[in-house]
Design a protein around this nucleic acid. Structure first.
Lengths: 341, 341
DNA sequence: CATGCTAGGTTTAGCGCTATACCTAAATCG
DNA sequence: CGATTTAGGTATAGCGCTAAACCTAGCATG
């Protein structure tokens, strides 16, 4: 059978509480000799505490949920961007002896279920829309620490962590404008009215204003964040928008699709059309020419998320309402002066 | 406070066991009227069972561990290939009301810790070496169902699930040989003596034998599975192996690196050198020309893993010792007839 | 010398659930 | 018509741990 606290206590000749205290580092009221004896026995017997019993008794699981949108049928679509976040989250949490539970969320009320069922101490929401975050009420959340990645929701129940999407897009647009482009396309998913996409859209717009460029030069298109949709859009651009000489996209994968679509239509990048991506994923450097893109510090974003979570859990007051990290432009080979026709 | 079984039982005027039985689908000995009444109250009160209490009492957690190698310092490196597996695993397990816990493993004995501490019902080992799987003893594993992805270990404690790496590599090599190549490089990580790499190596060799091609034509190189290492190798090939006209790599990412290295050295793909990857990741189609590669059915692999796990958990006898899925060659643009120099 | 304080513990009472054994009235059987 | 089965439950005893309150001997203090 399993080795329990009781076994250790019996062998050490003390009560289970003493063993429990030693194991949990509450050693103030235990003599050094007893501590040593207990630890030796624990080691020897290969005692591993039962997490279920712990979380039942202590009402805290040391599990952080990683909640990702999912449909019932499809498997989770985890973008490369998300993957990097997961890796860093896991490491940071493991350092603090927390564990990560991955859960696809098909309907929003599953969030409550996930939180309550597992007694989660906290959760990271990855890839949800702002409107979804907005809808999380106190009944759902309870006393669980929540961090929403890439959210601009004002919901005080979920702290937002994001990089500066406004500035990122602004930098990209300014870069294109400085190269002389005036007819620029903005391609991103169809949520211009909220969240990350909105910020990028506004940043993009702001650069036009700052440069005194006519906003009429912009072509705004709702394009799904996939390679295929990007390719489609590239072809469309080639066929029906001869005036456009540059494209800003909200994702590298989209930019790479656009590049392919343009190439198929016989247009050169950056010769005829310049392209800018977003995220600076590894794939940005795998394509030819290498993609000019906006970089965010993803590991930092994940680390901040963990810091906020643990801060909330340990009641170091409710920390900062939201954290915004920087973004910077990485100039590579897909942008050049404007000329097409 | 939390709504508990007791609350539901009191409100329904039955014992907690009856509620428990209804909730767990053991409804044989409960009248339909009582079932309906209980379910209505459960719904109404928003009752969610406590997973910790359950796993403590039932000695089963309904959690499957997803164990991935990790160093203490680095974050988990999750390859695109791994990501796809994770997504499918999550969906399949969620269907059966199991949950996924992600855990980086720095030292092998952490496997035991993870399994015991959380009372895991099973675990999927992702990305471990065969020798590591070999070392898992009964003391570590206990009665936990274990599936090792991409393992060729003979350890009966961990069922292996993999695709047919031997045949995949053989197909690739045969393709190159049929195109007339005789001086072919094999590039892969330095574990030629075991596991997946060994299978691919043997498959590669076997194609030479089958084609009656002299094995002396092969150049075997240990190259890390990264873009940077591939690029380095591509340059090396260009500079010091003028006789080589084709490269088979054990990963797409590696192949893409090789392509870049070759291009930098002024060699054309496939004009001067043909390149074949492995895995058929999305990125294989993002590069120019598109990468010829070996495809495995990753979703199927993950689904099989879940099937084996659940099979073991439900004691449908100990199922098949290991499962090998197919592999096929996807011919795209990076392979052509042999000519260089 | 009564009194408090401190070090070093112990005792008690659950946390919320499930396994197991048991119970009772009504229906069925030989 | 007594014995057995069946439907539809209940009672009891934990699972392994922790929070909170309590205890006691020994020492210092006014």
């Amino acid at each position: 059978m399993r080795v329990t606290l009781k076994d250790i206590a019996a062998e050490a000749g003390v009560s289970t509480m003493t063993v429990s205290n030693v194991i949990n580092g509450k050693r103030a009221r235990v003599s050094q000799a007893t501590i040593d004896r207990i630890l030796r026995i624990v080691e020897q017997r290969g005692y591993v505490p039962s997490a279920s019993a712990r979380s039942l008794a202590a009402r805290s699981s040391r599990i952080i949920g990683l909640l990702v949108p999912a449909t019932g049928e499809d498997s989770l679509t985890i973008s490369p961007h998300t993957v990097e976040i997961i890796g860093v989250l896991e490491r940071e949490l493991r350092k603090h002896d927390y564990h990560l539970m991955l859960r696809g969320i098909a309907r929003l009320n599953e969030v409550a279920e996930a939180l309550r069922s597992w007694n989660l101490d906290g959760a990271v929401l990855l890839g949800f829309q702002d409107v979804e975050i907005d809808r999380l009420g106190p009944a759902v959340v309870g006393r669980v620490a929540l961090v929403a990645m890439d959210s601009y929701s004002e919901n005080p129940l979920a702290l937002g962590v994001r990089s500066d999407d406004f500035t990122g897009a602004e930098l990209a647009a300014r870069h294109l404008l400085e190269l002389g482009h005036r007819r620029i396309a903005f391609a991103g998913p169809a949520f211009f009215d909220t969240g990350v996409v909105r910020q990028r859209y506004e940043g993009f717009r702001s650069a036009f204003a700052a440069a005194g460029a006519p906003w009429e030069g912009a072509t705004v298109a709702a394009v799904e964040t996939t390679h295929a949709a990007g390719r489609e859009f590239g072809r469309l651009l080639a066929a029906e928008h001869p005036e456009v000489t540059a494209v800003f996209t909200t994702a590298d994968i989209l930019a790479i699709g656009v590049m392919e679509g343009l190439a198929e239509a016989g247009l050169a990048v950056p010769g005829d059309v310049s392209v800018v991506g977003y995220d600076d994923l590894d794939i940005a450097t795998y394509v030819t020419p290498k993609l000019t893109t906006v970089a965010q510090d993803i590991p930092a974003k994940a680390a901040v998320a963990v810091r906020l979570l643990l801060g909330q859990i340990n009641r170091e007051e409710h920390p900062d309402a939201a954290i915004t990290l920087g973004a910077k432009l990485i100039e590579r080979g897909t942008t050049a002066g404007a000329r097409r026709g």
